[in-house]
Amino acid sequence: MKDNQAAKVLLTTCSECKPEEKILFVTDPTSYEVAKIMWEATEAYPNRTLVMMNERTMHGEDPTDSVAAAMRAADVIFGCTKFSLFHSQARKDAVANGARFVNMADYSVEMMYAGGLYADFAEARETCARIAAVEDGAKTLEITCENGSHFTCSIEGRKPFPQYGRSIEKGVSSSPPDVECATCAVEGTGYGVVYIDGSIPHPRLGLIHDEIKLTIEGSKIVKIEGGEQAEIFADVMKSFNDENVYNVGEIGIGLNPMCQLNGRMLEDEGCGGTVHFGCGDNVGFGGNVSCPVHIDLIFKNPTLKVDDTLVLECGKVMV
Protein backbone atom coordinates (compact mmCIF):
# COMPACT_ATOMS: atom_id res chain seq x y z
CA MET A 1 0.00 0.00 0.00
CA LYS A 2 2.87 2.38 0.78
CA ASP A 3 4.06 1.95 -2.82
CA ASN A 4 0.73 2.79 -4.45
CA GLN A 5 1.59 4.42 -7.76
CA ALA A 6 -1.47 6.70 -7.93
CA ALA A 7 -0.69 8.05 -4.45
CA LYS A 8 2.85 8.81 -5.61
CA VAL A 9 1.50 10.67 -8.65
CA LEU A 10 -0.84 12.73 -6.45
CA LEU A 11 1.99 13.58 -4.05
CA THR A 12 4.55 14.40 -6.73
CA THR A 13 3.26 15.20 -10.22
CA CYS A 14 -0.05 16.64 -9.06
CA SER A 15 1.08 18.59 -6.00
CA GLU A 16 4.90 18.48 -5.67
CA CYS A 17 4.67 17.97 -1.91
CA LYS A 18 7.86 18.73 0.00
CA PRO A 19 8.89 16.82 3.13
CA GLU A 20 8.75 19.88 5.40
CA GLU A 21 5.29 21.01 4.26
CA LYS A 22 2.12 20.73 6.32
CA ILE A 23 0.01 18.19 4.46
CA LEU A 24 -3.67 17.82 5.36
CA PHE A 25 -6.02 15.01 4.36
CA VAL A 26 -9.69 15.83 4.84
CA THR A 27 -11.98 12.81 4.68
CA ASP A 28 -15.29 11.29 5.73
CA PRO A 29 -16.52 7.71 6.33
CA THR A 30 -17.29 7.06 2.64
CA SER A 31 -13.85 8.12 1.43
CA TYR A 32 -11.75 6.96 4.37
CA GLU A 33 -10.25 3.94 2.54
CA VAL A 34 -8.90 6.26 -0.19
CA ALA A 35 -7.54 8.67 2.44
CA LYS A 36 -5.91 5.71 4.18
CA ILE A 37 -3.98 4.84 1.00
CA MET A 38 -2.74 8.43 0.85
CA TRP A 39 -1.85 8.41 4.56
CA GLU A 40 0.20 5.24 4.22
CA ALA A 41 2.03 6.69 1.23
CA THR A 42 3.17 9.76 3.23
CA GLU A 43 5.18 8.03 5.94
CA ALA A 44 8.20 10.18 5.00
CA TYR A 45 6.27 13.43 5.53
CA PRO A 46 6.48 14.31 9.24
CA ASN A 47 3.95 17.15 9.15
CA ARG A 48 0.98 15.21 7.82
CA THR A 49 -2.46 15.34 9.42
CA LEU A 50 -5.66 13.43 8.69
CA VAL A 51 -9.05 14.73 9.87
CA MET A 52 -12.41 13.02 9.49
CA MET A 53 -15.78 14.76 9.51
CA ASN A 54 -19.35 13.75 8.84
CA GLU A 55 -20.26 13.63 5.16
CA ARG A 56 -21.59 16.79 3.58
CA THR A 57 -24.96 16.66 1.81
CA MET A 58 -23.97 18.29 -1.51
CA HIS A 59 -21.00 19.48 -3.55
CA GLY A 60 -19.67 22.82 -2.37
CA GLU A 61 -21.01 22.61 1.17
CA ASP A 62 -18.53 23.88 3.73
CA PRO A 63 -16.78 21.49 6.12
CA THR A 64 -17.00 21.91 9.89
CA ASP A 65 -15.39 24.98 11.44
CA SER A 66 -12.57 22.86 12.86
CA VAL A 67 -11.76 21.40 9.45
CA ALA A 68 -11.91 24.85 7.84
CA ALA A 69 -9.41 26.13 10.41
CA ALA A 70 -7.08 23.20 9.65
CA MET A 71 -7.34 23.93 5.93
CA ARG A 72 -6.31 27.55 6.46
CA ALA A 73 -3.18 26.39 8.28
CA ALA A 74 -2.08 23.79 5.71
CA ASP A 75 0.37 24.02 2.83
CA VAL A 76 -1.22 21.23 0.78
CA ILE A 77 -4.78 19.91 1.18
CA PHE A 78 -6.15 16.66 -0.24
CA GLY A 79 -9.96 16.64 -0.16
CA CYS A 80 -10.73 12.91 0.07
CA THR A 81 -14.48 13.39 0.50
CA LYS A 82 -17.74 12.07 -0.92
CA PHE A 83 -18.87 15.53 -1.97
CA SER A 84 -16.45 18.04 -3.46
CA LEU A 85 -15.06 20.87 -1.35
CA PHE A 86 -13.89 22.67 -4.49
CA HIS A 87 -16.65 25.29 -4.47
CA SER A 88 -16.70 25.67 -0.66
CA GLN A 89 -15.76 28.90 1.07
CA ALA A 90 -13.29 26.93 3.20
CA ARG A 91 -11.35 25.91 0.08
CA LYS A 92 -11.39 29.47 -1.25
CA ASP A 93 -10.11 30.83 2.07
CA ALA A 94 -7.36 28.22 2.25
CA VAL A 95 -6.00 28.88 -1.24
CA ALA A 96 -6.23 32.63 -0.64
CA ASN A 97 -3.87 31.94 2.25
CA GLY A 98 -1.45 30.18 -0.11
CA ALA A 99 -2.49 26.54 0.20
CA ARG A 100 -2.48 24.14 -2.75
CA PHE A 101 -5.71 22.13 -2.98
CA VAL A 102 -6.09 18.72 -4.62
CA ASN A 103 -9.71 17.67 -5.04
CA MET A 104 -10.21 13.90 -4.62
CA ALA A 105 -14.00 13.96 -4.30
CA ASP A 106 -15.89 10.71 -4.86
CA TYR A 107 -12.77 8.67 -5.55
CA SER A 108 -13.11 4.91 -5.43
CA VAL A 109 -10.33 2.61 -4.26
CA GLU A 110 -10.26 1.20 -7.79
CA MET A 111 -9.24 4.61 -9.15
CA MET A 112 -6.05 4.34 -7.12
CA TYR A 113 -5.00 1.26 -9.11
CA ALA A 114 -6.02 2.02 -12.71
CA GLY A 115 -7.38 4.78 -14.92
CA GLY A 116 -6.84 8.51 -15.21
CA LEU A 117 -4.29 8.90 -12.43
CA TYR A 118 -1.85 6.88 -14.54
CA ALA A 119 -1.89 9.39 -17.43
CA ASP A 120 0.98 11.47 -18.78
CA PHE A 121 -0.06 14.76 -17.15
CA ALA A 122 2.68 16.74 -18.91
CA GLU A 123 1.47 15.70 -22.37
CA ALA A 124 -2.17 16.30 -21.42
CA ARG A 125 -1.21 19.79 -20.23
CA GLU A 126 0.25 20.64 -23.64
CA THR A 127 -2.97 19.56 -25.38
CA CYS A 128 -5.04 21.53 -22.90
CA ALA A 129 -2.93 24.65 -23.42
CA ARG A 130 -3.31 24.43 -27.22
CA ILE A 131 -7.09 24.30 -26.94
CA ALA A 132 -7.11 27.18 -24.45
CA ALA A 133 -5.15 29.26 -26.95
CA VAL A 134 -7.81 28.58 -29.61
CA GLU A 135 -10.66 29.51 -27.26
CA ASP A 136 -9.02 32.67 -25.96
CA GLY A 137 -10.63 35.60 -27.75
CA ALA A 138 -13.04 33.42 -29.74
CA LYS A 139 -16.66 34.40 -30.30
CA THR A 140 -18.68 31.30 -31.16
CA LEU A 141 -18.79 27.61 -30.30
CA GLU A 142 -20.66 24.84 -32.11
CA ILE A 143 -21.12 21.18 -31.14
CA THR A 144 -22.52 18.38 -33.29
CA CYS A 145 -22.70 14.60 -32.81
CA GLU A 146 -23.64 11.75 -35.11
CA ASN A 147 -26.64 11.02 -32.86
CA GLY A 148 -28.25 14.33 -33.88
CA SER A 149 -26.95 16.67 -31.20
CA HIS A 150 -26.48 20.25 -32.40
CA PHE A 151 -25.72 23.16 -30.07
CA THR A 152 -24.42 26.68 -30.65
CA CYS A 153 -23.60 29.54 -28.29
CA SER A 154 -21.52 32.66 -27.90
CA ILE A 155 -18.34 32.54 -25.81
CA GLU A 156 -17.37 36.11 -26.63
CA GLY A 157 -15.60 37.77 -23.72
CA ARG A 158 -15.32 34.53 -21.77
CA LYS A 159 -11.82 33.36 -20.94
CA PRO A 160 -10.93 29.67 -21.21
CA PHE A 161 -10.25 27.74 -18.01
CA PRO A 162 -7.60 25.08 -18.65
CA GLN A 163 -7.48 22.57 -15.81
CA TYR A 164 -4.31 20.55 -15.81
CA GLY A 165 -4.90 18.25 -12.84
CA ARG A 166 -1.93 19.77 -11.00
CA SER A 167 -1.60 22.11 -7.98
CA ILE A 168 2.08 22.97 -7.96
CA GLU A 169 1.95 26.70 -7.19
CA LYS A 170 0.60 28.54 -4.16
CA GLY A 171 -3.12 29.22 -4.30
CA VAL A 172 -3.81 26.72 -7.10
CA SER A 173 -6.56 24.09 -6.98
CA SER A 174 -6.95 21.06 -9.21
CA SER A 175 -9.07 17.93 -9.55
CA PRO A 176 -6.98 15.05 -10.92
CA PRO A 177 -7.52 12.89 -12.89
CA ASP A 178 -9.68 15.57 -14.48
CA VAL A 179 -7.76 17.30 -17.26
CA GLU A 180 -10.04 19.55 -19.27
CA CYS A 181 -10.30 22.87 -21.04
CA ALA A 182 -13.51 24.64 -20.10
CA THR A 183 -15.19 27.77 -21.31
CA CYS A 184 -18.52 29.38 -20.48
CA ALA A 185 -21.51 30.06 -22.69
CA VAL A 186 -22.70 33.64 -22.59
CA GLU A 187 -26.05 33.74 -20.82
CA GLY A 188 -29.03 33.59 -23.16
CA THR A 189 -27.05 32.59 -26.28
CA GLY A 190 -27.13 28.79 -26.12
CA TYR A 191 -29.57 26.98 -28.42
CA GLY A 192 -29.97 23.41 -29.64
CA VAL A 193 -30.74 19.79 -28.88
CA VAL A 194 -28.22 17.58 -27.12
CA TYR A 195 -28.38 13.86 -26.34
CA ILE A 196 -26.61 12.97 -23.08
CA ASP A 197 -25.21 9.47 -23.55
CA GLY A 198 -22.18 9.33 -21.26
CA SER A 199 -22.66 10.08 -17.60
CA ILE A 200 -24.34 12.34 -15.06
CA PRO A 201 -22.22 11.96 -11.89
CA HIS A 202 -25.07 12.08 -9.38
CA PRO A 203 -25.96 9.39 -6.82
CA ARG A 204 -29.23 8.64 -8.62
CA LEU A 205 -27.81 8.48 -12.14
CA GLY A 206 -24.15 7.75 -13.01
CA LEU A 207 -23.52 6.02 -16.33
CA ILE A 208 -26.22 6.72 -18.90
CA HIS A 209 -27.64 3.66 -20.67
CA ASP A 210 -30.69 5.39 -22.18
CA GLU A 211 -30.02 8.68 -23.99
CA ILE A 212 -31.47 11.80 -22.39
CA LYS A 213 -32.65 14.40 -24.89
CA LEU A 214 -32.24 18.02 -23.79
CA THR A 215 -33.77 20.96 -25.60
CA ILE A 216 -31.89 24.18 -24.83
CA GLU A 217 -33.21 27.67 -25.51
CA GLY A 218 -31.57 30.87 -24.33
CA SER A 219 -28.92 28.80 -22.51
CA LYS A 220 -31.66 27.13 -20.42
CA ILE A 221 -32.75 23.50 -20.47
CA VAL A 222 -36.43 23.84 -21.36
CA LYS A 223 -37.31 20.19 -22.04
CA ILE A 224 -36.01 16.83 -20.78
CA GLU A 225 -37.10 13.75 -22.75
CA GLY A 226 -36.29 10.05 -22.83
CA GLY A 227 -36.82 6.98 -20.69
CA GLU A 228 -36.43 6.17 -17.02
CA GLN A 229 -33.12 8.00 -16.58
CA ALA A 230 -34.57 11.13 -18.19
CA GLU A 231 -37.42 11.01 -15.66
CA ILE A 232 -34.91 10.64 -12.82
CA PHE A 233 -32.84 13.54 -14.14
CA ALA A 234 -35.92 15.74 -14.45
CA ASP A 235 -36.84 14.88 -10.86
CA VAL A 236 -33.31 15.63 -9.64
CA MET A 237 -33.34 19.03 -11.32
CA LYS A 238 -36.79 19.87 -9.97
CA SER A 239 -35.72 18.88 -6.45
CA PHE A 240 -33.22 21.74 -6.28
CA ASN A 241 -36.13 24.21 -6.39
CA ASP A 242 -33.98 26.77 -8.20
CA GLU A 243 -34.59 27.84 -11.80
CA ASN A 244 -30.92 28.73 -12.17
CA VAL A 245 -30.00 25.03 -12.10
CA TYR A 246 -31.30 24.77 -15.69
CA ASN A 247 -28.69 27.25 -16.91
CA VAL A 248 -26.10 25.74 -19.28
CA GLY A 249 -22.90 27.57 -18.43
CA GLU A 250 -19.72 25.53 -18.46
CA ILE A 251 -18.67 23.70 -21.62
CA GLY A 252 -15.76 21.41 -20.79
CA ILE A 253 -13.62 19.28 -23.11
CA GLY A 254 -12.24 16.12 -21.46
CA LEU A 255 -8.56 15.57 -22.27
CA ASN A 256 -7.27 12.69 -20.16
CA PRO A 257 -6.88 9.65 -22.47
CA MET A 258 -6.54 7.25 -19.53
CA CYS A 259 -9.90 8.13 -17.98
CA GLN A 260 -12.86 5.81 -18.48
CA LEU A 261 -16.48 6.74 -17.84
CA ASN A 262 -17.46 5.17 -14.52
CA GLY A 263 -20.10 7.48 -13.04
CA ARG A 264 -17.65 9.32 -10.79
CA MET A 265 -17.30 13.05 -11.36
CA LEU A 266 -13.57 13.67 -11.65
CA GLU A 267 -12.86 10.64 -13.84
CA ASP A 268 -15.84 11.34 -16.09
CA GLU A 269 -15.26 15.09 -16.53
CA GLY A 270 -11.72 14.49 -17.74
CA CYS A 271 -12.51 11.53 -19.96
CA GLY A 272 -10.87 11.98 -23.36
CA GLY A 273 -13.25 12.12 -26.29
CA THR A 274 -16.10 13.70 -24.33
CA VAL A 275 -17.62 17.10 -23.69
CA HIS A 276 -19.65 18.05 -20.64
CA PHE A 277 -22.11 20.79 -19.88
CA GLY A 278 -21.99 22.22 -16.37
CA CYS A 279 -25.51 23.25 -15.38
CA GLY A 280 -26.38 25.70 -12.63
CA ASP A 281 -23.67 27.87 -11.13
CA ASN A 282 -21.20 29.29 -13.66
CA VAL A 283 -19.60 32.10 -11.66
CA GLY A 284 -16.39 30.09 -11.33
CA PHE A 285 -16.14 29.97 -15.12
CA GLY A 286 -16.62 33.68 -15.70
CA GLY A 287 -20.41 33.66 -15.88
CA ASN A 288 -23.07 35.56 -13.99
CA VAL A 289 -25.44 32.84 -12.78
CA SER A 290 -25.14 32.10 -9.08
CA CYS A 291 -26.59 28.83 -7.87
CA PRO A 292 -25.70 26.42 -5.02
CA VAL A 293 -25.67 23.57 -7.57
CA HIS A 294 -23.29 22.69 -10.39
CA ILE A 295 -24.12 19.38 -12.11
CA ASP A 296 -22.22 17.93 -15.06
CA LEU A 297 -23.74 16.22 -18.10
CA ILE A 298 -21.27 14.22 -20.18
CA PHE A 299 -21.74 13.15 -23.79
CA LYS A 300 -19.48 11.15 -26.08
CA ASN A 301 -17.74 11.59 -29.43
CA PRO A 302 -18.59 15.25 -30.12
CA THR A 303 -17.40 17.38 -33.01
CA LEU A 304 -16.62 20.86 -31.68
CA LYS A 305 -15.73 24.05 -33.55
CA VAL A 306 -14.58 27.35 -32.06
CA ASP A 307 -15.13 30.11 -34.61
CA ASP A 308 -13.71 28.45 -37.75
CA THR A 309 -11.29 26.12 -35.97
CA LEU A 310 -12.08 22.42 -35.68
CA VAL A 311 -11.08 21.48 -32.12
CA LEU A 312 -12.64 18.00 -31.88
CA GLU A 313 -13.85 15.62 -34.58
CA CYS A 314 -15.93 12.74 -33.24
CA GLY A 315 -14.06 13.07 -29.95
CA LYS A 316 -10.57 13.25 -31.47
CA VAL A 317 -8.44 16.33 -30.72
CA MET A 318 -7.63 18.15 -33.97
CA VAL A 319 -5.53 21.13 -32.81
Results as ranks from 00 to 15, higher is better:
Asp197Leu: 12
Tyr113Trp: 07
Leu312Asp: 01
Gly60Val: 01
Glu231Arg: 15
Val222Leu: 08
Ile196Arg: 04
Pro292Leu: 00
Val236Cys: 11
Ala70Leu: 07
Val9Cys: 06
Gly218Ile: 10
Gly157Pro: 08
Leu266Val: 03
Val289Cys: 02
Glu156Lys: 15
Ala124Lys: 05
Cys153Ser: 15
Asn244Trp: 02
Glu43Arg: 13
His150Asn: 11
Asp308Ala: 06
Lys305Gln: 11
Val34Arg: 04
Tyr164His: 14
Ile251Trp: 12
Met237Pro: 01
Ile224Thr: 13
Val317Met: 03
Gly315Thr: 07
Ile23Lys: 01
Ala68Ile: 04
Glu243Gly: 10
Gly254Glu: 04
Leu117Phe: 15
Gly115Trp: 03
Ile295Asp: 02
Asp62Phe: 02
Thr140Pro: 00
Trp39Cys: 02
Val76Met: 11
His87Tyr: 00
Ser66Glu: 10
Ala119Lys: 03
Pro203Phe: 04
Glu243Trp: 00
Glu187Ile: 07
Leu117Trp: 06
Ile216Leu: 02
Glu211Ser: 07
Ala119Ser: 15
Phe151Val: 04
Cys145Leu: 11
Val311Lys: 05
Ala94Val: 03
Cys14Gly: 05
Ser149His: 13
Ser84Trp: 02
Ser88Leu: 00
Gly227Asp: 05
Arg158Gly: 09
Val34Gln: 00
Ile143Trp: 11
Pro177Met: 08
Gly284Val: 04
Asn247Leu: 12
Ala70Asp: 12
Ser154Lys: 10
Tyr113Lys: 08
Ser15Asn: 14
His202Gly: 14
Tyr45Ile: 09
Leu261His: 03
Lys92Ser: 15
Asn103Gly: 07
Asp242Val: 04
Gly273His: 06
Lys170Pro: 06
Gly315Arg: 01
Phe233Cys: 13
Lys300Arg: 14
Val194Asp: 01
Pro19Glu: 15
Glu135Arg: 08
Glu20Gly: 09
Leu310Gly: 11
Thr127Arg: 13
Met258Ser: 10
Asn4Trp: 05
Ser174Met: 13
Ala73Ile: 04
Glu225Val: 15
Ala74Asp: 05
Ser175Trp: 05
Asp235Leu: 07
Asp210Glu: 14
Gly263Lys: 07
Ser31Cys: 08
Arg100Lys: 14
Thr64Gln: 04
Thr27Asn: 09
Asp308Phe: 07
Gly98Leu: 13
Asn47Tyr: 11
Gly60Gln: 03
Ala114Ile: 04
